[in-house]
Amino acid sequence: MSGVFPPGLPRLESAGLDGWMVRLFDAIDEANMPWLTALVRDCEKAFGDQLVDLVPSYTTLLVTFDPLRLSPGEARKRLIERLQWLQPDEEPADAPVKELPVWYDPAVGPELSRLAELAGMSLEEVVAGHSERTYRVFALGFAPGFAFMGSVDARLEAPRLATPRRRVPAGSVAVTGQQTAAYPAVTPGGWNLIGRTPAVLFDRDREGFSLFQVGDRVRFVPIDRAEFERRGGDTRPMEEER
């Protein structure tokens, strides 16, 4: 595995009494993900029911274990052993891609025109630029089922809103910088909204709960208003905020 990782990595850093931070990489890259997903599975096997939680994110994996049954030293040994034999998940060219239907429209995506202006593109070109590539899920966080995906077409990069919205409607599809995401529930948020999905991104009654997992490949598929409504989407436009 030498040569794959930046100098000095992988590295284990103390993350408290019950955790280790495994640092594998130092920059965001899709090529990190097969290593992270492989390490997630390795840790599940290595720790069994002594495992409490795993949080993969962009370049790292936070491993939380039960400190009553495993000391940090013992956990460290186990991780070092696994890292020595770590092999990335295979990535076949035809790996499954999850499709997320999106109604791209200024009524539900008030920053669609801002992006078009910043990029000097038409609305249609912005939609094409966002929907014509496959993204990777780098991390879940901020809210249950909120998937940080990348990387967005450089022409569509836009800074966060100067003032975050207090209420972003559930299903809103958004971009900021090189990242894109869909809001699973109503939350505050400062990303640029460009459309809305009728899909349920987080469901407490569904197997696995979250539509997306770290490492997933995702494609946004444009749908029209009729199709959005047929799939149960909420067509109410954005509320005015002041």
Binding site: G19, L61, L62
Partner: peptide, 10 residues
């Protein structure tokens, strides 16, 4: 930094 997992008490 690039976002990463946060443990209790961090």
């Amino acid at each position: 930094m690039i976002s990463e997992g946060i443990s209790l008490g961090a």
